[in-house]
């Protein structure tokens, strides 16, 4: 079943067209990576998928439920009650974590499930402790975000997103604020999640990682999908622009 379907997405900021007719599908258990140079629109695409930005035109469907629908050349969003339910289907891990600094690690993870999802406190805390253990942070539950390294903070923010039990998890350049060592920590966790068949969409600059972890890769530039497909197909592409991009990355 397709968890997320985006069709003919268009988005502009003032007179800059950021997304020009983008379509994509994410199936259950699939990992999709979106790569491309800065300013290609990949982060905007993610922000549109997670409804932090409104699209101008196109359709967005989660689990077959319509979040936005193109009507007469304009996107119409679903009713607030429907959107609220649809919001529960996905989570997002930010580039700069955005943990709540005044909450302890455990409270960061448990507050939304308890306050928003109205789940039982004991059950949520038990799950949060299990998540922390999985992230290798079992002794950090009472720490505050400022006491953690960037890599630890990002692991907490992954745990916070997972605690909501999303069907699909988005990552917006999750390692861009981290040094190589901490980057490896985070990539390992995402790999583990992929092995557990977590459905994920990852915007990243880590090419090798994208190649190893993804089922499907989209290469974007200037608001369009230049090429997409299985990792091997993309990395062996004869597309001139893609060769240039990979060439620059490997320093050739």
């Amino acid at each position: 079943m397709s968890l997320l379907e985006m069709r003919h997405i268009k988005k502009h900021f003032e007179d800059l067209e950021v997304l020009k007719d983008i379509s994509l599908t994410v199936n259950e258990g699939e990992v999709l990576s979106i790569i491309g140079p800065s300013g290609s629109g990949k982060s905007t695409l993610l922000r549109c998928a997670t409804m932090l930005e409104q699209i101008d035109d196109g359709d967005i469907l989660y689990m077959g439920e319509t979040a936005a629908k193109s009507q007469g050349g304009k996107a119409e969003y679903a009713k607030p009650a429907d959107l609220k339910r649809i919001h529960g289907y996905f989570g997002l891990v930010f580039q700069n974590f955005n943990l709540f600094p005044h909450y302890s690690v455990l409270k960061n993870i448990t507050d939304a499930p308890i306050r928003v999802q109205k789940r039982k406190k004991e059950e949520v805390y038990e799950e949060a402790r299990a998540l922390l253990k999985k992230m290798g942070l079992e002794d950090k539950g009472d720490a505050y975000p400022y006491q953690l390294s960037g890599g630890q903070q990002q692991r907490v923010s992954i745990a916070r997103a997972l605690a909501m039990n999303p069907k699909i998890l988005f990552f917006d350049e999750p390692t861009s604020a981290l040094d190589p060592e901490l980057t490896a920590e985070i990539l390992k966790i995402i790999k583990d999640l992929a092995a557990e068949k977590m459905t994920m969409v990852i915007v990243t600059h880590e090419m090798n990682f994208a190649r190893n972890v993804s089922d499907h890769i989209i290469f974007m530039e200037q608001g369009v999908i230049v090429e997409e497909g299985a990792p091997e197909k993309l990395f062996n592409s004869t597309n001139r622009r893609m060769r240039e991009f990979f060439g620059k990355l490997s320093g050739e």
Partner: peptide, 24 residues
């Protein structure tokens, strides 16, 4: 980013303001 994180976690405007923003 604090507002965006709160929105993604499903906090409504009231909860976001009084639980996340105001204490800070």
């Amino acid at each position: 980013g604090q507002y965006e994180a709160a929105k993604l976690l499903g906090y409504n405007k009231f909860q976001t303001f009084f639980c996340i923003i105001m204490p800070q």
